[in-house]
Amino acid sequence: MVTPNLAPMEEIVSLYQTVQFSEVISWIKVGTVTDFPENAGACIKHNSRQIAVYHFTRTQKWYACQNLCPHKMEMVLSRGLIGDMSGVPKLACPMHKKTFSLEDGSNLNGEDYSIATYPVKIEDGIVYIGFAE
């Protein structure tokens, strides 16, 4: 059995801080548009971070957020269903269906924890995620 030597939870959580478009220092190429499923999510890995990326084909918008669900600290958010709540794009965690806004990462069930979101840009069919370092 492999039991990886993981960083403590607080350290893993602190890896994920929302990045605003204006704060982006490096745009990381994570694949082509067709690598990602339509109207659903997939996960990418950048150094020690796992980032969930969603393509809302109906509105032609892209969103990205941490793959770590803050409810039980599992790397699962990219596997959740997406949609909207009164126009706000959202995602539902596959574990217990807690929902989060993909615009600002806020928790839509009125609980205290939220998620970090990241800017996405598409250029010539390539998908980039923005990081602040």
């Binding site: 990886p4 694949g31 690598d35 990602f36 990418i44 890995k45």
Partner: peptide
Amino acid sequence: FVNSEESDDQLV
């Protein structure tokens, strides 16, 4: 992962 062939190393 879309951009890597690795499997998830966070599983404990």
